[in-house]
Design a protein around this nucleic acid. Structure first.
Lengths: 230, 230
DNA sequence: ACCTGAACACCGTTCAAGT
DNA sequence: ACCTGAACACCGTTCAAGT
């Protein structure tokens, strides 16, 4: 609710990379990705815009650090030794939920798939894949498919909340549905019409889960694989 | 090879939306997404930058149209009545290849997942899914998983060629691998280290195919589904 | 009706000048 | 060494003025 530039009381008490990244996350969360400018950031930190460059090389690196900070909070080492399926799904949903809580994160992750944040995700996914009996060469492929699924959903969520800001999610999806059905005739685009009807009242999270389960079911069907499903 | 602004001979012979979109695609293909500015576009079309706004609402719409134009060329109605699996895979690879041929396309698709281009993809995927015996409620989920996979790969490819411009793909991946292994210790990040070793000489296209097959195998394992695999 | 291109309101980034 | 903030080189977009 609060807009930019409150709390201008700070001084040269201690500018640092982590303070800058923290402030950046606050701006991103409060007002969205377009609100993060070096001028706004400098104002919030009560310093000059040039000062930021002493700690961060450029805006790309700043966003990279902000994303890694958030993802690092959930993509840590495997927690409870649950069943492999549930463990992977829990991780995927953890990232999914975090993206939904911080819409700018989805855009950032899908824009730069080799950033630090993705490294964490890959590692976490990979470790949880250990308990599956996946042939060594396939392991990378499976992790990649899961990460792709996540990045795809991330971009979707980011784009959605970017536009739906204030309109409300279901109203936005209704708009998309209307746009699609009006742009495409039912004869030529039967599938899109069928989908459009479901769009407004479908559950993103559930659909994301279905996708993960589809991939995991495919893994179970892999040759040489007798995964230890619970 | 050729930079901006050749062929400045045109005049008011006929500015139109399709001419503008065509010129935009030429610039994007030749010099990348950052080269597409209204000034550069106006120069190439030998007109004022404001004139473009008579046919295109803004840059977003311009990119939307450019992406739809390209995707429309391959995502048409189902071609040969091949086996369902092969048909879906062929479509997915068609989009994948087009993205690789036009790097800016990947970025554009993953940035705006509700644009016209994605509508075409959804429809094509959906139609090819007809021959599978997928329960009605699951059909949307399956299409969504496939599209997510594609969008994830699209972003990856776009980011890669954005940076690798000139460096060469394998050199770039070697850089990523070095960056990842140096940033992460082998004890804490064993999976990333294992992956990094494969990164430089892995086949993107093959990995993408593996992901599609994983999803399709998951579909075959779906309850109530006895897909007619060939 | 369509085109022109200067002008406006921004950006990220740099860098001389300060402390 | 660190900070400041004006200045630079761009953007997308608008709009009075032309044809």
């Amino acid at each position: 609710m609060q807009k930019s530039g409150q709390r201008a009381g700070r001084r040269r008490d201690g500018l640092s990379a982590s303070v800058i990244v923290g402030a950046a996350i606050e701006i991103l969360d409060a007002d969205g990705e377009e609100a993060l400018t070096f001028r706004a950031l400098a104002a919030r930190l009560a310093t000059g815009s040039g000062a930021i460059y002493h700690y961060v090389a450029n805006k790309d690196e700043l966003l990279d650090a902000a994303a890694a900070e958030l993802v690092g909070r959930i993509a840590g080492p495997s927690p409870a030794p649950a069943a492999a399926d549930e463990s992977v799904l829990a991780l995927m949903l953890g990232v999914f939920d975090m993206i939904n809580a911080h819409p700018w994160l989805g855009a950032q992750l899908s824009r730069k798939p080799w950033q630090t944040a993705i490294l964490h995700v890959f590692e976490s996914v990979g470790q949880r894949l250990e308990s599956f009996a996946i042939p060594q060469e396939s392991r990378f492929d499976v992790a990649s498919a899961l990460v792709n699924h996540m990045l795809g959903a991330a971009g979707q969520s980011a784009a959605g909340s970017r536009i739906a800001h204030g309109v409300g999610r279901s109203a936005f999806l209704k708009d998309v549905a209307r746009d699609w059905t009006s742009r495409a005739s039912p004869d030529e685009y039967p599938f899109v019409h069928a989908i459009a009807a479901q769009l407004a009242h479908h559950d993103d999270r559930q659909q994301f889960t279905a996708g993960v389960n589809l991939i995991l079911a495919g893994v179970a069907a892999l040759p040489q694989t007798g995964a230890d499903r619970s």
